[in-house]
Structure formats: C-alpha cells, structure tokens
Simulated scan of single mutants.
Amino acid sequence: MIDPAIQERLDLARAELRMTVESARTSLEAAQRTLPPTREETEEFERAARSGDLGRDMQELAARVDNRETRWSDVFDGTSPFVELLRSHLDAMGERYVTSVRQSLEDDETFDPAATSSGV
C-alpha cells in the first residue's frame, strides 16, 4: 500500500500533467487555426505516421487515411471513428515534453497554477 501522502502527491502530479497536456492541446489547436502546417510539414508527418515512427496506432491511422476510411482533419478534430488511435500518440507526446512544458510554466511569470487547477 502506498503512503497516503505519497499517493496525494502522485495524484496532484497526474492532475498537473493532465492540465499541462490539455493546455498544450488548446495551444496547439489555436496555433493550427492561425498557422496551418506547410505542405512539407504535412508530408513529413504523414511519412512518419506511415513508417511507424510515430507508433503503431499512428501507422494504423495513416493506413486508414490512405484507404479513405477517414481523413486526418477528422482525426484531429475528433470526428473520426478512429480518433481513439490518436490517444497513444498524444500520451507519448505528453510524456516526452512534460519536463519542458513544466519548465516553461515555471518560467512564465504570468502562469498561476492556483487559477487553473480548479476543475481538474
């Protein structure tokens, strides 16, 4: 059994990670609305997905896009029936970048964790 104080700290860390990932998703969505990827960036992403560089789920998504079962735009806006395959990629990105995101938040003088932690 885990010590309750440690469990509480783990729960808070998980909540902070969820909040950070959600914030990153929101920022990414805003950036995508204002600055669409270049053709080269899109092609590189699709190549990486097809090759398996982004994981098996993304490789399966790429195959489904290639087979015209869905579109990337539907996957990323959440309307594709295969959107769950995106979750592992987003989780991996969250884990990969959690340290740098946390550092950015710590360095951001305007960030107030108390203001954003409600509702998590």
Rank of each mutant, 00 (worst) to 15 (best):
N67F: 03
N67Q: 12
N67E: 13
N67P: 00
R68S: 13
R68Y: 09
R68V: 08
E69A: 13
E69H: 13
E69K: 15
E69I: 09
E69F: 11
E69S: 10
T70V: 09
T70M: 04
T70I: 09
T70C: 06
T70R: 03
R71C: 02
R71K: 13
R71G: 06
R71Q: 12
W72E: 04
W72H: 07
W72P: 07
W72S: 06
W72C: 07
W72I: 04
W72T: 04
S73D: 13
D74P: 00
D74H: 13
D74R: 14
D74G: 05
D74M: 10
D74L: 08
V75R: 04
V75A: 05
V75M: 03
V75Q: 04
V75H: 06
V75C: 06
F76G: 02
F76E: 01
F76N: 09
G78L: 10
G78M: 10
G78R: 09
G78D: 08
G78V: 08
G78P: 07
T79K: 12
T79P: 05
T79G: 09
T79V: 10
T79F: 03
S80Q: 07
S80V: 07
S80L: 05
S80M: 04
S80K: 05
P81V: 03
P81A: 06
P81N: 06
P81T: 05
F82I: 00
F82V: 00
F82K: 02
F82L: 02
F82W: 12
V83R: 15
V83N: 12
V83I: 09
V83P: 01
V83S: 14
V83E: 15
V83K: 12
E84A: 15
E84D: 13
E84W: 07
L85A: 08
L85K: 12
L85W: 01
L85N: 12
L85Y: 10
L86V: 05
L86E: 06
L86C: 02
L86D: 04
L86A: 13
R87Q: 11
R87K: 11
R87W: 04
R87Y: 08
S88C: 00
S88N: 02
S88T: 10
H89I: 00
H89T: 03
H89Q: 11
H89N: 09
L90M: 12
L90K: 04
L90R: 09
L90H: 01
D91V: 15
D91G: 01
D91R: 15
D91H: 05
D91Y: 03
D91N: 10
A92H: 03
A92F: 02
M93V: 11
M93P: 00
M93K: 11
G94I: 00
G94F: 03
G94T: 01
G94D: 02
G94Y: 02
G94E: 04
G94V: 01
G94C: 04
E95S: 08
E95V: 02
E95N: 10
E95I: 01
E95F: 07
R96G: 03
R96Y: 05
R96S: 11
R96F: 05
R96K: 15
R96D: 04
R96M: 11
R96W: 02
Y97D: 15
Y97R: 11
Y97Q: 10
V98S: 15
V98G: 00
V98Q: 14
V98M: 08
V98Y: 11
S100N: 07
S100L: 09
S100T: 12
S100M: 11
S100K: 08
V101Y: 13
V101G: 01
V101H: 10
V101S: 08
